[in-house]
């Protein structure tokens, strides 16, 4: 199935790139075996899809007429537009590419990187030398099918619809103008403008149920120039503490609390840390997780909540 489709796409592309004149639909139907047997409406549908497939791959298809006398549009691909330009890569630059390619090693995205390396090699870039042994990097791509689908939608500026499971497991349908993909603390997110909630948002790829569907037309929206997924993430994930707690920490312990602390004062009975927080419930859970190494002095409601959690865990509630 996919084999025949790729055969057809290649023949279409080769026909379009080896012509200087625009080829009309009827000419294409005539010269491409794969289209010949189809009736007119099946051909039209298939041809539209094939054009979209080539475009989403990154092949620009020109539409135009060879003379004013022609009454239908034709198609062609300008070879100069689609060929890899001369890159003039120095050996140390090729080495950087080789190191970068390893970032995706072992993931489904690795295939795309491998073909890139072979393309660069074909035009004489040396991507074998690894003269930079100090750097290696690897990212995980759980759910990379979704990554791929979103990369194409973002490229084509197409609105995407998908089902999303929230942290409680409830499913909702979302409609998004995707702006980009972000890997933040080893988790993949797609970010963009949520047309239902009417605001910029991030969605965890691992919580997307089924396949995201590109439902919008190409070039259906613009990505704002100042769009920054990192800013959205920072806002979403950093606690801008509007409250403050005073905690007594055991010496040398509770590193995550120490990193958040505004001030730490060493006393004979332990380190007294002033730590900002915003969500009482979340912060109580975090303090509780350190057991006797982190004790709340203030405020009273935090202290009460931590003690009640500890009592439940101790089974004395």
């Amino acid at each position: 199935m996919s084999k025949r489709k790729n055969e057809r796409l290649l023949n279409l592309l080769f026909a379009l790139m080896s012509t200087r004149t625009y080829l009309s639909r009827s000419t294409l139907k005539e010269i491409l075996e794969e289209y010949q047997t189809l009736d007119q409406s099946a051909f039209e549908r298939k041809f539209e899809r094939d054009k979209d497939d080539l475009r989403s791959l990154g092949v620009p298809i020109e539409v135009g007429r060879n003379s004013e006398n022609e009454d239908v549009d034709g198609y062609r691909v300008n070879l100069a537009d689609i060929q890899l330009p001369e890159l003039d890569m120095q050996p140390e630059e090729g080495a950087i590419v080789a190191v970068a390619a390893k970032v995706w090693q072992g993931s489904a995205m690795g295939d795309a990187v491998t073909t890139t390396l072979r393309k660069l090699q074909t035009i004489g870039v040396d991507v074998e030398t690894e003269s930079i042994p100090l750097l290696t990097a690897e990212v995980s791509t759980g759910g990379s099918d979704a990554i791929e689908a979103f990369v194409e939608s973002i490229q084509m500026r197409r609105v995407v619809t998908f089902d999303y499971a929230d942290s409680q497991g409830a499913h909702t349908s979302r409609t998004l103008q995707p702006w980009g993909l972000l890997n933040w603390r080893d988790r993949w997110y797609v970010g963009g403008f949520d047309l239902v909630r009417d605001e910029p948002r991030l969605f965890r790829l691992s919580r997307i149920v089924g396949k995201p569907k590109a439902t919008g037309k190409p070039d259906g929206y613009e990505i704002p120039e100042n769009a920054s997924l990192r800013d959205i993430a920072t806002k979403m994930f950093t606690t801008v503490g509007d409250r403050e707690a005073v905690l007594r920490l055991a010496p040398n312990r509770c590193q995550t609390l120490r990193q958040k602390a505004r001030a730490i004062e060493s006393t004979p009975s332990g380190d007294i840390a002033t730590v900002p927080f915003s969500d009482l419930e979340d912060f109580a859970a975090e303090v509780c997780s350190f057991g006797s190494a982190a004790l709340v002095q203030e405020p009273a409601d935090l202290k009460e909540l931590v003690i009640s959690k500890l009592k439940t865990i101790a089974g004395v509630a």
């Binding site: 989403s56 791959l57 990154g58 092949v59 689609i82 060929q83 890899l84 330009p85 950087i96 590419v97 190191v99 970068a100 390619a101 390893k102 970032v103 995706w104 995205m109 795309a112 990187v113 073909t115 890139t116 072979r118 393309k119 074909t122 035009i123 750097l135 990097a137 990212v139 791929e148 990369v151 194409e152 490229q155 890997n183």
Partner: peptide
């Protein structure tokens, strides 16, 4: 001569360079 980097080829390599 090879074609320009496809959408996914380009996006994945650019992201990897960003990591480096």
């Amino acid at each position: 001569r090879p074609l320009r980097l496809t959408v996914l080829e380009g996006a994945s390599l650019m992201a990897a360079l960003g990591v480096l």
